[in-house]
Design a protein around this nucleic acid. Structure first.
Lengths: 201, 201, 201, 201
DNA sequence: GATGAATGAGCATTCATTCAT
DNA sequence: CATGAATGAATGCTCATTCAT
């Protein structure tokens, strides 16, 4: 990479990181582009060289952060050596929840955009396609000793439940703190998984 | 009510209705207070006589609309004469879903604010407390032939799942159109309910 | 007029006058709305209370100034007591030219917009309709001892010629200073008038 | 011409043509230099190698396009073999009008700049001086069987009248469509020419 | 209570121009 | 010669809020 390209990358990343920082601390609505560029140490016009507007950079950030989150969970799963689908799903959910418990600004930031539909397109689009968590999900399901029907529906239901309930439990300890709620959540997840086993209905 | 008071109420309601109309068509961010007062036919200053700012009227609208939605479902349940808790819960969820399918702007409007935590405070606060859906839920659970443990957790889980999954299914037909997804959703709801029966775990 | 209305009028007129001053000295493109409001001593938002944007105020100024110019010419004609159409037309043109010779910024300002089509609509639209110069023209033509054919064409041709040639002669003394060019211009105007007399063609 | 020089010329012409295209479609004010270079396929800095700014390229375009317009008229006149000045002038005016009727963007573009003063300097400055239309005018006048006084004034008056009246008639059909207005215009032109014949006044 | 004129801080966006490569 | 990333001044416009009437 030439000197110029390096410089470009550095500026773009400075904007990216600064925007994330400000969005999570001040909120998106209260963050002006002037704030971002000022703190990132670039000129105002430079922002528009790389992003269309505030919502463009926001969307790109959501995709990026979500991908990071699930990639980490996927990698941890690989090292954990768990073979049963139920335990694998719980492991991933648990890993994501634990990460978000430690990083509530991130939870706040991506939660409003983390729904299964967006998730799938988010995780499928992008650079390192060999590490796609959605593909990984399908693979895990494939390899399990049981057969599953309506796989998409199953994943969707689990993600919506875990995302929505997890969000409130982590942020507001409502109806229980997340650690106390986890057993209930995982019990429901297991029930949903089991209900999708072929010949179970 | 005196003539003056009537006039006051009329103005306040005009603002209320106009705000709802504009929020659902233009979006909250793109709706200016000028838009509301202009369309409502009152002066700008009058707005501040009744509401603190745009978000004040928004919150009051969410509470109001959510209450209407669940009150209708509760009333319909009363007339339906269903005695089993499982069927009662499904009936209510189904009634709400069907209403929102017919009224997507309303879905859009309340969805971003309809989470169990908000729901409870929403439904418990307000004018006609004898008709509270949350109290009704507790009552229905009480009357069922089974006993239930961790009732709050159960309601929370169901509302989060139905709210989050229903929202996407209705608006984006994702992963299935709502009518096709309903059987899966209701199966999960039933499993969650059953898992809360005392001595079931 | 109440105190409030007086105030409104004063602000609007301050903007109007300041805009004219700046447009004629700095040019329209180089005049920012900030310049106008600052000099007029009102807040920026106030500008948008009365005008849509810079071009709105410009158009309204052109109409206003053009009307003033022709009204003055018409009034002078009334007092001059000239009965022959040829002399009346020359009188008006001459009066306008002489005014603009003394007020080149005004010439510059309205010239780019002074075409017969605009002129007619300009002069016909507005407040004091009884003094419309276009109507007056038609009246003068009507009263003349000769009959005229294609009156609209005649007026158009004269206005275009006098406007376009006058503009250059006054501003650039090109091909002659206006006083030297006048005899040629008026000779042409007379020829055009005569050529429109019925039965002359 | 060397390969490098050819390349230079190609870039300059690309900028020239693209600028004309954009000026006539989007308007000069709304055309940014970025637009021009982007569409022309050259780098931004390259623009400044050949032109000082937007108004520099605009002026050069006006000169270029006006010259083309009158050269074509002059060439057509040569082939038409008309000997009388009156008819020659009408021929040229008519040729220019007909061209502009077919090419209204061009009319729009040059009209705001086409006044006799500019015309003369335009037509006299430039590359192929032997074909200058202004010189040609003088030559035609010289050769006519009549003698003419105040030749500059005559040409000026005719150009201003035809330019100004033609512009409105073509673009706005005001006060008549150009074809209907032509007889009136040409009658006036003839009268102006005749009035300049020596010993006529 | 009701009005609506006035405010002015605040913000997104554009764009001509420069200059290191 | 050519490039195009970077700049940052400039500016139009919005809008919540106030307050005299």
């Amino acid at each position: 990479m030439g000197k110029v390209d390096e410089n470009k990358k550095r500026k773009k990343e400075a904007l990216f990181n600064t925007a994330y920082e400000l969005f999570t601390t001040k909120g998106i609505n209260s963050t002006a582009i002037s704030d971002i560029v000022e703190r990132a140490g670039v000129a105002k016009g430079t922002f528009y060289l790389y992003f269309k507007d505030k919502y463009d950079i926001k969307n790109k950030l959501v995709v990026h952060k979500t991908r990071e989150l699930f990639d980490a969970a996927g990698n941890a799963l690989n090292e954990a050596g768990i073979s049963c689908l139920e335990e694998q799903m719980i492991f991933i959910i648990n890993h994501v929840i634990d990460t978000l418990v430690e990083n509530k600004p991130l939870l706040n930031f991506i939660s409003k955009n983390l729904v299964m539909g967006a998730l799938r397109s988010t995780l499928l689009t992008g650079e390192n396609n060999d590490n796609d968590i959605y593909e990984k999900f399908l693979e895990l399901i494939e390899k399990d000793k049981y057969d599953y029907a309506d796989v998409n529906v199953m994943l969707f239901t689990i993600v919506e439940l875990a995302g929505s309930a997890g969000y409130n439990s982590i942020l507001y300890s409502e109806p229980l703190p997340i650690e106390a709620y986890k057993p209930f959540l995982y019990r429901s997840v297991r029930l949903i998984i089991k209900s999708h086993r072929s010949g179970t209905e």
